[in-house]
Design a protein around this nucleic acid. Structure first.
Lengths: 205, 205
DNA sequence: TAGATTGTTAATCGATTAACAATC
DNA sequence: TAGATTGTTAATCGATTAACAATC
């Protein structure tokens, strides 16, 4: 392990490596090389070796990386060797889809509460959860010590909700609203905006 | 306009600028500066000026950028000054959410067909569309000349479907399955994987 | 005119790649 | 031992920032 600051761009690639390693592991593959992994994820072998070596010597010359071992190391580096509680705010179609998605659990996350400000939706069931009113958001999140949230509210509401989440102690927000959120520097935001992704590709068409 | 090759990293920032400019425009703001836009999106003013100037001189010294004009230019650069037809493959929860999402249209996209391989779902209505069987996918897409697709099938099926899409002439895939797709170099893939985004943030918690 | 802000150049900073000794 | 592949260094490449003349 290494005390120096690791560039965020490297941190961003680790989940991609993990995802590929998890697939390989499921197929029963025990060992891989930077070369093979690189071909799968579209990243050069040199870069993969360099990225991984920031955190320790996890491979063996001549044979490569033992997948379960490397996965454990990456999980521990990214702190997903545990299950994080996540609050979901916004019980629209996207909120429903996320609440019912089965793929979070074995990647380190579970939704534990769902909020919406629509009186029609409050009390309704979404996935395994009863939708709670947004008025109770800050208190409920703070009491439960939840540090992560997914935001699937309309763009006009997103900044206000983000402010609430920050007040409630949330430190990481996955934002589905098509708007850039302003948050304090100690709060991380990741953005998911399908239209932006599509726009990035049309340039090349 | 400029014939030199523009780095993809710049192309990737243009949708972020557009998104912010569109919000400002909706609020009736007519003019902005690289400084102001930068604060909104969390990118330095120098970088914004440099990015935009790759494509022409769209600003005015002393006053900044006229938002509707700049938006038009960006739309035309990214080729979203039109509406692209998009095929949606996978009529699960996420597919439903995307099919019903109203935010694509005024950012240059519309879903025009929905596919699934589940006999139970074929014929069912999703948003405004009747789910079609995947066996007709390649032919239907090719006939319609659709060049973009969103992929919301399970991970195990994603690569096979991607291969089908490529065969059908699709050149841009927005992939929601948590797996790295292998496609020919002339086909663009963008990845949306909420768990990866969350994992990228837990490192800092 | 004075103030503001662009577009662009040069300097800096950071990321990627190539190459290879070490070693399994 | 011979072959393969890591971890790491140095070289290259590319992206970001700072600064400022041009000009609205």
């Amino acid at each position: 392990m290494n005390a120096e600051k690791i560039p965020d761009i490297i941190i961003g690639r680790l989940p991609i490596y993990m995802r590929a390693l998890q697939r390989m592991s499921e197929k029963g593959i025990q060992t891989t090389s930077s070369q093979e992994l690189g071909e799968r994820v579209g990243i050069s072998a040199a870069q993969i070796r360099k990225d991984i070596s920031q955190f320790g010597e996890f491979g063996k010359q001549g044979t490569g990386y033992h997948i379960p071992f490397l996965l454990d190391k990456l999980r521990s580096i990214l702190k997903v060797d545990r299950v994080w509680d996540v609050a979901l705010v916004g019980a629209g179609d996207m909120g429903h889809a996320l609440a019912r998605y089965q793929g979070f659990r074995d990647r380190g996350f579970q939704i534990v509460m769902v909020f919406d400000n629509d009186a029609q939706k409050v009390g309704e069931k979404v996935g395994d959860f009863i939708v709670q009113d947004m008025s109770s958001l800050a208190e409920t999140i703070r009491k439960a010590g939840v540090k992560m949230a997914m935001l699937t509210v309309p763009a006009v509401a997103a900044q206000d909700v983000a402010d609430e989440l920050v007040k409630a102690g949330v430190k990481a927000i996955l934002n589905y609203a098509p708007i850039s959120l302003n948050v304090p520097p100690d709060v991380k935001v990741q953005h998911i905006d399908p239209a932006s992704h599509l726009q990035r590709m049309t340039y090349y068409l």
